[in-house]
Design a protein around this nucleic acid. Sequence first.
RNA 1: GGCGGGAUAGCUCAGGUGGUUAGAGCGCAGGAUUCAUAACCCUGAGGUCCGGGGUUCAAUUCCCCGUCCCGCUACCA
Length: 719
Amino acid sequence: MSEPKRYTITAALPYANGPLHIGHLAGAYIAADIYARFLRLKGEDVIFVCGSDEHGAAITIKAKKENTTPREIVDKYHALIRSSFERFGIAFDIYHRTTEPVHYETSQDFFRILNDKKAFEVKESEQYYDEDAKQFLADRYITGTCPKCGNENAYGDQCERCGSTLSPTELINPKSTISGNKPVLKRTKHWFLKLNEYQEEIAKWLDTKKDTWKAHVFGQCKSWLDAGLQPRAMTRDLDWGIPVPPEFEGAKGKVLYVWLDAPIGYISATKQLFKEIEATKFDFAYSNNFSNRIKNRKADDWKDYWQSKDTQLVHFIGKDNIVFHCITFPAILKATGEFILPENVPANEFMNLEGDKISTSRNWAVWLHEYLDEFPGREDELRYVLLANMPENRDSEFTWQDFQNRVNNELGNNLGNYIKRVVDLTYRFYSGYVPTKISADDVLYFQKQASPVKYIEIFDAISETKKKVAELIKIFRFKEAMQQIMELSSLGNRFLQENEPWKLIKTDPEVVELIMYTSLQITANLSMLLKPFLPRTAERIEHMLNIKKENWYEGNILLASGTKINESEILFPKIEDEQVQQQLDKLNKSKMDNTTAGNDATENKPQISDLKPEITFDDFSKLDIRTGKILEAEKVEKADKLLKLLVDVGFERRTIVSGIAEHFKPEEIIGKDVSVIVNLAPRKLKGIESKGMILMAEDETGKLYFVQASGVNAGSVIR
RNA sequence: GGCGGGAUAGCUCAGGUGGUUAGAGCGCAGGAUUCAUAACCCUGAGGUCCGGGGUUCAAUUCCCCGUCCCGCUACCA
């Protein structure tokens, strides 16, 4: 591919139901920020967009629980996330949000375009509707007799006895599992993206990415394509989201699928960005971060960044978002016929914390806003450690011990100390003035000397490092790029050590000038190289050296002779053992608070759970709920979520299958008091008949709790 | 369960389209030095490259089987 004319960089939209943690940063934002800063430094035409993803269920659930509105929840977290990014130094051009009018319009327009382009198939299906419950029934809410094998307890999507795939309307004698009534067929519409029709195009396009995309990204896409793409519903019967455009028949009560709306957020953020640029009124945009090339542009210019063939689009995401960014969203973009597809999607894997998966629900995380408060002015240290351990090709691990080691040794002892050495020596020898520039004569002179000053090699190394770093960034190998920079710093240390200017100053002051001149150029080049990686540090070095470089400079001489530099400062004070201990104590506390181990609640957006319709007392009294005690528990074969329980419900012992295996280990729940619905119709799960249901409470994070009546014998009635 | 990715030094990670001694940083041991944040520099010890089979003159690398970790997906009434 020829050099692109401009770049559009996106970073995954954080979900506005919680704060940011180090996993987010290591997964997408640091890499994206380095990439964007580097391109800006090179003077490229680049935009870097992001924003809060504010639709979806976790938000309404949280709102209900906190007795507030979804709006307040998203306002709160949007503000927290935005300010955390700002303080940390992720240099977006714009940080937008999906509840903004621009985004509603853009998303709805997309919906219209997709419709015009016949990318949808409207399944105006006859969907079963429960008149009592006043709601449409998803496949699993319907049971009936299997037309193929006669099993009376087949489900709307599948018969578990004969294994056939069914649709609800094929069932004989369908029954709503909510009310037990016979549901009626009612017409409802859903808009399905005909992904299957884009199979070939997407496959062909992806095939061209084989060599440039990461193995895990390409592999995952390939596996989806091999399985065959299926139409996917792009609408939902929900109430928090972007409404299906009202002119569509049957739009009422339907919203866009959150995964349709979210990536369009990249585009609406871009629109908003150029709107604000034209109006020179910056509500969401950060004009200080702008690449020179986007200043003074017009509102309509957003199109260049999404529709122009010579634009390179790159999505930075975590590995959990691969399929949507590499298949579904590209299919959507393709379907419009107007948009470009991503050049690369350099998804990172996950970062673990102290040996465990990062988990919001278990409070097992290093929260960015807390770090910023507890380690003020030390943003780059975190940036560095997350970068050094960035999970580029496999999962990685963050530990506080490693944080301390890396900050103290690599940043402090190698880099920070080196800069300070050079600056201090410059003050000692030359009162802070950069020594004489080497002339051609000097070069000859020193070349003839058999002195150990191998300064030419140093300048070669600087050039080489700059070249390598630039290349590595372009192929998204940020970790390695950073290592190259650290090696240059190491080389600087070695150069001083080998030449010992503090000794030579007494005997060969001219040689010392050369040594120091060379060393100062190394530090100046380090500051430039560090700009994309450790921007705050780069600024502080620039301040020490009294230089200001806005643009990448290919040459090696960045610091003119005679420049008066500023006095040294300590760039990276040591991280003390107590600070590490404090953080470990904090994590330990989280661990203690989690008395129920192994809660791996998914932090993805769960399906919305609407308030259920009112029922009568009669309805309620149909339920027979009793206390019980778990006697035995074991994992169900070939099912990750199911536990087979033997429960004493007073009058008998029952086998109950419950979907709690990801939350509880079998051995730790034996003897637990539980509440059981004992008159629920038996149902087979993975071949085991389950007679009844264990009641569980679920908090907003997805964590489960047993509903327990303490001190009561098994078999007591709950009413 | 299906699919994808991974497993390399005590720790955190690179790398290898098959070919003498598999790398880095940290940690550890020894030495040198004193300009600098007790920093820097040099030297050294340390690895059946997850296990088992196969292909090959040759496997850590390719193929098959297995184990464990992560993601997607199915199972959650």
